[in-house]
Simulated assay, not measured.
Amino acid sequence: MRASLIQIAVDPDESVDSRRQHAASLVSAQRGADLVVLPELWPVGAFAYDSFRDEAEPLQGPTHTIMAKAAADAGVWLHAGSFVERAPDGTLYNTALVFTPEGERAAAYRKIHRFGFDRGEAVMMGAGDELVTVDLPQTTLGLATCYDLRFPELFRGLVDAGAETLVVAAGWPERRRSHWTLLARARAVENQAYVLAVATAGTHGGVPQAGHSIVVDPWGETLAEAGAEEEVLSVEFDPEKVATTREQFPALKDRRLGLTPPPVSA
């Protein structure tokens, strides 16, 4: 299976429409890949909080339209990263989209863990409340977005729902890049799953981005890692390795917590 991770550099001087066109051209060039993945909030920039309300759009807005066409043009499964969704009730969400090779929407995932503590998306956006998996012919994807990477229970829930390949779209800051690679490898090892983690490059909202998109196998080995600038990271991986890893080292079968409530001592 071949995946192309598109590490976009969000240019603050470009219009959102120009960014959409740029992303679409990059996706369309990936014909021959099985799966293409974009990063978090690439239309606006994950730290460009001041733009969130002005650039928010409905689920089936311009980003949905252009990404659906790009998936169909390339004939690929497309995780289109995320954008700022404005729900009918006016609530904003950090929403990721997945499209089939025919350009049909297969899934939408609203980010569950909002970053910012007392500012940014933590106070501007609503929280999603549903785990989302997507069945591809070769593997089952589990969807997560950026700050979600710090919450292992989300990924264990995705694995329990059948996920074999964990896809993380992110706008991760450069100053915490060591956490990015550490957590991506940890999520792969503890869940015996592939992790495809795609970040942005460049600077937005005054925050330099980490780049360094990474693909990790179920044993925790790094198969490919990008640099700091915009690039397309392409990697071949064997989805069957998930099953063989879990069979050869069946740690998931030894779980004691999370399956049924443990006893609580007074």
Rank of each mutant, 00 (worst) to 15 (best):
S28E: 14
A186S: 13
D11E: 12
R177F: 08
P39F: 00
P208R: 10
R256D: 12
T260M: 10
L149I: 15
V16F: 03
A210P: 02
T203W: 03
P239L: 06
D11C: 06
A266G: 14
A68V: 05
D148V: 15
A144C: 12
G116S: 13
R119T: 11
S51G: 09
D238S: 06
V37G: 03
E121N: 05
D34T: 15
G90V: 14
W77H: 11
Y49I: 10
D238M: 08
L257N: 14
L35A: 13
T65C: 05
F99V: 08
L26F: 03
Y49R: 10
S82Q: 12
R119K: 14
V16N: 03
G202M: 03
V207R: 03
E236V: 10
A71G: 11
I8W: 00
M124H: 11
E240S: 09
W219R: 15
P239A: 04
A33W: 00
A266C: 09
K253I: 14
I8Y: 00
L136G: 02
A144M: 09
P261K: 05
R177P: 01
L143V: 04
P263K: 10
V132C: 11
A33I: 02
G162D: 07
P173M: 02
P218H: 03
V207Q: 01
E236L: 07
L97T: 10
D160V: 12
V198C: 12
S178L: 07
V264I: 12
D129T: 15
G128S: 13
R246W: 01
F155P: 01
V216D: 01
A68G: 15
V159P: 02
V123D: 09
S25E: 06
L143N: 02
K253V: 13
V235C: 13
L26P: 00
T65E: 15
D135W: 05
F83H: 09
W172K: 08
R53Y: 03
K69N: 10
H204G: 13
P101F: 11
E240Y: 02
V168T: 14
W219Y: 10
L143Q: 04
A46F: 00
D148R: 04
F237C: 05
R114G: 15
L257A: 15
R185F: 05
H113L: 09
A193G: 11
V264L: 09
V242C: 01
A33N: 11
E190Q: 14
D118Y: 09
A193C: 15
S4D: 11
G142D: 02
T222N: 01
T200K: 00
E40T: 15
A96L: 03
V235Q: 08
H64P: 12
A193P: 01
D73Q: 11
H212L: 08
T181L: 08
L131V: 08
T139D: 08
F99K: 05
G258W: 13
L257F: 13
P39V: 07
E57H: 06
